[in-house]
Simulated assay, not measured.
Amino acid sequence: MTLKDIPSGKIGLFEVLYHWTSIDDALSILKNKEIYGEDHGKHANFSINRRADIAKSKEVCLKFKFNGQHKMMFGDTFDTKDAPLNSHNTIFHLFSSGDPESIYTDEGFSKLGYWQSNVYPGTSGLEFDGIECWDEEYWKGLLSQTLPSKPSRLAFWSYKENIRSYDRVTDNKARQNKLIQQSKDNVGQTIKT
């Protein structure tokens, strides 16, 4: 494993971090002001490019900043249980391919295979910066739906089906509104890892 400082002209590429997750997990992150991953090292996983294909769940994309050291990490870091030494104030941007010695030229930098960014447990410097976006497939139609009126028992043959639909829409709308409010309340807050 090779660690490198990010070249001075490239640091801007790593300033915004994205984390796709479920609505419930996003609510938990903001309520507890804590985030962790399920990988061996329990590190929280982020992306610098809203990459959703490696996310466990992708209902909402949260946005973060990291106020600390940014390091580029090359080599196989999978199944790594421990954080690199002196990582208490460092985020690691993992690259699965590319020559670590070529990062100082635009051409060499463009050939790097970025994978993800990791913040290990106990690291300080992670700051919540809001909701970036909602997954279009998951929320298709839900965000634009108007709240249905609660069904009456008069149409008893369809009441059960209608009440389930009503409850699903109202529950999802309530969770969405709660997350939006918690997001507004927590922008700029430090998130523990």
Rank of each mutant, 00 (worst) to 15 (best):
S96Y: 11
E127D: 00
I29S: 06
E132S: 13
H88T: 11
N118T: 04
E127R: 12
N45I: 12
Y36N: 11
G75R: 03
K42P: 00
G125V: 02
K81I: 12
H40Q: 15
D53C: 03
D135A: 15
K31P: 00
I35K: 00
K65W: 05
P84L: 01
Y120E: 04
V60H: 09
K56Q: 14
T90K: 05
E59R: 09
C61H: 09
F92M: 01
T77F: 13
F74S: 01
F95M: 09
F78T: 10
G108P: 08
Y114K: 02
D25W: 08
Y104H: 13
S124K: 15
D106V: 03
R51E: 15
F46N: 05
G98L: 01
G122R: 08
N32G: 00
K65F: 12
S124L: 12
D24V: 12
S47D: 06
D25H: 13
E34C: 13
N89D: 14
A83S: 15
E59S: 07
N32R: 11
C133P: 01
W115E: 14
H88M: 06
L27K: 14
S87P: 02
N67R: 09
Y120F: 15
I103Q: 00
L94C: 10
F95Q: 02
E107G: 00
F74T: 02
Q116L: 05
G68E: 06
M72Q: 05
N49C: 08
D25F: 09
P100S: 03
T123R: 07
C61F: 11
K56F: 14
G130I: 07
F78H: 11
L85H: 13
S124I: 13
N49T: 09
G122S: 04
S97G: 07
K33Y: 03
K63Y: 03
I23M: 14
D24W: 06
T90R: 04
L62E: 05
Y104S: 08
L112W: 01
A55I: 12
E101M: 04
F66C: 05
L126P: 05
H88F: 10
F128N: 06
T80P: 00
C61M: 09
E59F: 07
G113A: 04
S124C: 11
F78V: 06
F128E: 11
Q116T: 10
E132N: 14
I91H: 09
S117Q: 07
T105L: 01
D39W: 04
N49K: 10
F109G: 05
G108S: 08
G68W: 03
S97V: 00
Q69C: 09
S87Q: 03
I131M: 12
E38D: 15
L94R: 07
N45D: 05
A83Y: 06
Q69Y: 12
E101G: 03
S110F: 08
K56D: 15
E101W: 01
E107D: 11
D129F: 06
K31Y: 11
E101R: 03
I91E: 13
F66I: 05
A83N: 10
Q69D: 14
K65V: 03
T123K: 06
P100M: 01
D82N: 14
G98F: 01
L126A: 08
S124E: 15
S87C: 06
D106H: 04
T105E: 02
H40I: 13
T123I: 04
P84Q: 01
E38C: 07
T77P: 00
N49E: 12
T80R: 11
E136F: 08
I103N: 00
